[in-house]
Nucleic acid binder design. Structure first.
Length: 102
DNA sequence: TTACTGACCTTTT
DNA sequence: AAAAAGGCCAGTA
């Protein structure tokens, strides 16, 4: 019996260390579905605060935040900066440095 | 039950 | 190299 994708994603996000970020595609891939990256976003919104998950450590493939300025863009940026992550001039994170790789 | 949406990714032109 | 289109899965109404 295997866990659902929902639980799987949460487990992975919980395993993201500090000062590191993970992309949706990566999480989905580790969850078992490389093409379910969209679900990761949905799950985050569904149970991020519920499960107390570090949703701020989850970003898109570009290394930037897909949220809107009113959706918490500044909030996430602030959280990541607080962890030690640095943003480029384009508001992009250096995936080469902060991308979480197990 | 079916249909639609979604904090996306990958591949092709 | 950049831009555009398609595709897939899961949850919610």
């Amino acid at each position: 019996m295997e866990k659902s994708f929902h639980e799987r994603v949460i487990e992975i996000i919980k395993n993201i260390p500090e000062g590191r970020v993970a992309t949706y595609g990566q999480i989905a891939s580790f969850a078992g579905n490389p093409k379910a990256a969209r679900q990761v976003s949905y799950i985050l919104h569904s149970s991020s605060q519920k499960e107390n998950l570090p949703w701020h450590r989850v970003i898109n493939s570009k290394g930037g935040i897909s949220l809107k300025f009113e959706g918490g863009y500044e909030l996430q940026k602030k959280m990541l900066m607080n962890e030690g992550i640095i943003f480029n001039n384009n508001d992009i994170i250096d995936l080469k440095q902060f991308l979480w790789r197990p």
